[in-house]
Amino acid sequence: MMRAWLTQHAFVFFHTLKRLIATPVTSLLSVIVMGIALSLPVGVYVLMENLESMSGQTTGTPQMSLFLQQDAQQNDFDRIKQRLQEEPHIVSFQFISKAVAFKQLQHSSGFSDVMAGLARNPLPDAFIVHLEHNPPEALERLRTVIQDWPEVAHVQFDSEWIERLNALLQLGRAIILMLATLLSIAIIAIMFNTIRLQILTKRDEIEISKLIGATDSFIHRPFLYFGAIQGLAGGVTAWLIVALFIRVLNEELVVLARLYEVDIHLQYLSLQDSMSLLLFSAWLGWLGARISVASHLWQIEPR
């Protein structure tokens, strides 16, 4: 029984593939249309993912830099450490001596020539403080407290740009969601219509199958397969379009990266995101077919 069931599904699957191949131009056209539609939100999503990962791991948790007076000594450092440990709202902190900072700056390309020309190290000793998520006012209060410590020359708050970036990313997510929703509806509509036309051309087959005892699921199955396979093909097309787009952008970025001596390149869709894309597109195709089948097949009742 199980094997008969499997054979049946395999049969419908290959039969559907054959049908897709039998009308290559029509199939290809609708697959391309679906691919382009899906590639828009996916493309924006990939760009955002890259922006997010480029902005560093610090994204999300606010951070503060404490620059010390030029003449600060080891006992000053210890005092500050002590006080930071007593402060609430601080997740962790990290001491960066002027020597370490100088070396880091020398290594991070772009500045090496400038640094070589300097007679002495102009950088101050510093603490980098990672903070808990807090309302901006609370963080601002903490900043004023620390600013009053005598050893501290300057406190720089790094959360403003993070907040701006977050707001930007939020906007990006809203755009993706809107694009994805609209284009998903478009794909469902395309599939609805494709299946409607197929049902019309297969009217006899459907009617006769019902006359001799076909269940509804037997009759629905080929159309649902058709929708899912074509949706999947649309997803693959979207993936290829986005991959091509990243490749082209990366080639441009190589030139840019060489000019600025920085290493930037865009990541492709992750394995997990790729799988989600393919599953989702197959599901969209299936859903369009499902709705179409539900709204058209009941009209073909043998009477």
Binding site: T7, Q8, I212
Partner: peptide
């Protein structure tokens, strides 16, 4: 073949 396909006969 159609009636056999419909009633899931062993291939």
């Amino acid at each position: 073949l159609l009636p056999l396909q419909i009633s899931n006969f062993d291939s």
